[in-house]
Structure formats: structure tokens, C-alpha cells
Design a protein around this nucleic acid. Structure first.
Length: 255
DNA sequence: ATGGCCTGCAACGCAGGA
């Protein structure tokens, strides 16, 4: 079973690239973030024609998440239960016995902003919900754009980003708090080259110069992580014409 | 040089991203 995540930065713009990538990478499940489309405008037909079922939770202009799956999606659930939020950032579904949670963690803008406070509140709510979910679903994957670079190795210039948003201590503590619930960063289960990132700024030739961050993650419960046989960042879509600023992450499980 | 680029919305610049 292959599970992937990709922040597409507008599904309207990126749909052809998503269809191409489905065809080449052949994931069983693909979680999308920043679809930026209301549900009434979601491209259901094109995705069905590619052989995928789909669940989505979107809104106009901002945010928006979706789960594409070759197998049926059961128990579809949008949002974090008990956490009131107008922003469409979470979608969960069960696929072939695996609970898949697609997340688009708030960016946070700057560490002294209201948006950062929202990010931290949001992460606390996610933590509480995951704690429950892990007891209910032994095989669980929570994948998406975390907007957190877990360690200095996940940032192209840790000195410049020291205590800045995406790299700050509170964010990293929240991230490792999630791991401490019993989750594994699938990418770090395997040896990887230095300077592996999932996002590069559109400006200043960020991708060409590999000035990036590893902020998109596939976390798996211990039971599921034990079946993980590989996890890779696919940088190919970042070389497309009109690319998303993020590129997909793909994990394979021997299920 | 505290921006640079990209998206969507609804303007003819803005907010937001990271």
C-alpha cells in the first residue's frame, strides 16, 4: 500500500499535474492540501476517471484538503472533533483497515502573530484528538503539510531561521509531542541524503539552489510504521511548468 | 533594499503562503 501527500497550492491549477503524478507514481492513497476550491467546484469526474475515489473538504480561496483512494473510503470525517474551526484543514477516512488523516497545519506567519497562537492551539487540539484516535485505530497514518521543520537538518539555513516560524522551539515541541504519542516519521526511518526538502520558495531560485525545508511529513503509528518499506520525496513535480511550491512525499507499506 | 513569486478574488492591488 502506497500512501502519499502533496500540497498542490490550488487544485484548479495543478489538476493536470496531479493526474500525471497519479499515473506515474501509482499511489493507493493521495492526500492533498491547499486545494483552494469550494466542494461544488471539486473535479470529481476527472479523478474518478483516473480510477480514484475521493473525499474532500474545501472552501473558497484558502486551505482545503482531499483524500484520493483506489479502495473505498469509509468513516469520512472532516475537522478535529470538538475544535471549532472555519478553516478546512483536516480530513480523515479509513482505507483497507488503515486510518488515514490528511492535515494542513496552519502556517503561523510569524512567531509573534495571532496566526501563530492559532497554529499552537490547533496543534494542541490535534494532539488530543490523535491520542484518542490511536487507541481506536492501531494502524493509523497522519500525513500532510505540517508547516514544521522538525530539526535543523530539515532547513536549508538553520541560523537564518533560528526561532523563526516553521523552526521555532514551540512548534518543534508540538511536533515531537505528536511523535511521543506513538508515531514515527517514515522518512527518517531510512537513510537519506543531506538537504532533502519538500518545499522551496518560488522566489530567488529557491528550488534550483535547493534552499528548502522538509515540512511535509508522513507519520505512522508504530504498528503501521513496522510495515513501512520505503519513504521518498519525489522532487520531479517541482520541475514541472507552473509547479506547486511543495512536492509529494510517498511511503510504501507492506500491507 | 525586510522584497523577490504564486494563487485567488475581484480588482486594476490585496491577503496569504512559508
Amino acid at each position: 500500500m502506497k500512501i502519499a501527500t502533496w500540497n498542490v497550492n490550488s487544485l484548479n491549477v495543478r489538476l493536470p499535474q496531479v493526474l500525471d503524478w497519479l499515473s506515474s507514481a501509482q499511489p493507493d492513497v493521495l492526500c492533498l492540501q491547499e486545494t483552494k476550491a469550494e466542494d461544488s467546484r471539486f473535479p470529481c469526474e476527472a479523478i474518478a476517471a483516473a480510477g480514484y475515489q475521493v473525499a474532500f473538504s474545501g472552501q473558497k480561496t484558502y486551505n482545503g484538503v482531499a483524500i484520493l483512494s483506489r479502495s473505498p473510503l469509509a468513516g469520512v470525517q472532516a475537522g478535529i472533533p470538538g475544535f471549532s474551526d472555519d478553516q478546512k484543514r483536516v480530513l480523515a477516512a479509513t482505507v483497507d483497515g488503515v486510518r488515514v488523516i490528511c492535515v494542513y497545519v496552519p502556517n503561523g506567519q510569524t512567531v509573534d502573530s495571532d496566526k501563530f497562537q492559532y497554529k499552537m492551539r490547533w496543534l494542541r487540539a490535534l494532539h488530543g484528538w490523535l491520542e484518542e484516535s490511536l487507541t481506536q485505530y492501531p494502524r493509523l497514518a497522519i500525513v500532510g503539510d505540517y508547516n514544521i521543520a522538525p530539526a535543523d537538518a530539515d532547513c536549508y539555513d538553520p541560523a537564518a531561521w533560528y526561532e523563526q516560524v516553521l523552526c521555532s522551539t514551540p512548534e518543534r515541541e508540538a511536533y515531537f509531542g505528536l511523535l511521543n504519542l506513538g508515531l514515527v516519521d517514515c522518512f527518517r526511518r531510512f537513510d537519506a541524503a543531506d538537504r532533502c526538502y519538500t518545499w522551496w520558495d518560488y522566489r530567488q531560485g529557491g528550488f534550483r539552489r535547493n534552499l528548502g525545508m522538509r515540512i511535509d511529513h508522513i507519520l505512522a503509528s508504530n504498528a503501521l510504521a513496522q510495515t513501512c518499506v520505503g519513504c521518498v520525496i519525489d522532487t520531479a513535480p517541482r520541475r514541472n511548468e507552473r509547479p506547486s511550491d511543495h512536492t509529494p512525499v510517498l511511503a510504501e507499506f507492506s500491507l
